[in-house]
Amino acid sequence: MTETPNPNIIDADTLTGEMRPIRRVVIGLGSNLGERFGNLQGAVDALADTPNVWVTGVSPVYESQPLDCPPDSSTFLNAVVLADTTLSAHRLLDRALAVEDAFDRLRSDVKNAPRTLDVDLIAVGDRRSDTDVLKLPHPQAHERAFVLQPWFDLEPDAEFPGMGPVAELLAKVGTEGLVRRDDLVLEFE
């Protein structure tokens, strides 16, 4: 994965004239409460409607068993969105949180509590961050088949920043408990 799909393309901010690179973004989506598929489609639509974010691909939908969740948690629907953006990682994170809030995401002290919508920044170009607010690349995504498989479906030759080829990571993790749902197709414009 490179910092930009084409490092020679730069987008100028029309207000300030500031030059900002276009970065490839990998975003993970998940839902295990409410209208799960509708929540995922709504997230794709909201991301596609975000200024300075251009959705370039949406993976097939997968159903997965809850991982490290409270007992009796429902199964998740998961997908990955690829996009190009000139937004900073922090602005993109703000947008991801706003999309979650729009779908009534409730936050609690319970680790991995069920949720209507999860919008995770997996990678933002080659950007690195290790703050309390933003960790990039996502610190557990390289161990999660529900992220790796949909990402692999979109980009079989993708590289997880700092971890290696997505194909190798997926082979290591395996796909047990992951079911592709070809009856559910996310759309984007």
Rank of each mutant, 00 (worst) to 15 (best):
M1G: 09
M1I: 03
T2M: 06
N6A: 04
I9M: 04
I10N: 00
D11K: 12
D13Y: 02
G17N: 08
E18H: 04
E18Y: 03
R23Y: 00
V26Y: 08
I27E: 04
G28T: 03
G28N: 02
F37K: 07
L40R: 08
A43R: 10
A43W: 09
V44F: 09
A48W: 06
A48M: 07
A48R: 06
A48F: 09
V53I: 04
W54F: 06
V55R: 01
G57W: 04
G57F: 08
V58W: 00
S59K: 11
S59I: 09
E63N: 01
L67V: 14
D68V: 04
P70L: 07
P71S: 06
T75Y: 10
T75D: 14
F76P: 11
V80I: 10
V81Y: 11
T85Y: 13
D94Q: 14
D94N: 14
R95P: 12
A96F: 06
A96I: 05
V99M: 13
L106M: 14
L106Y: 11
R107W: 15
K111P: 12
K111T: 15
T116I: 14
I122Q: 05
V124W: 00
R128C: 02
R128L: 09
R128I: 01
D130S: 14
D130Y: 05
L134V: 05
F146T: 02
L148E: 03
Q149F: 00
P150V: 08
E155I: 13
D157A: 13
F160T: 01
G162F: 10
P165L: 07
V166R: 00
E168F: 02
L169W: 07
L170D: 05
L170P: 11
A171Y: 02
G174A: 09
V179D: 06
R180I: 08
R180Q: 15
R180Y: 11
D182A: 13
D182R: 15
V185S: 10
L186D: 12
E187C: 13
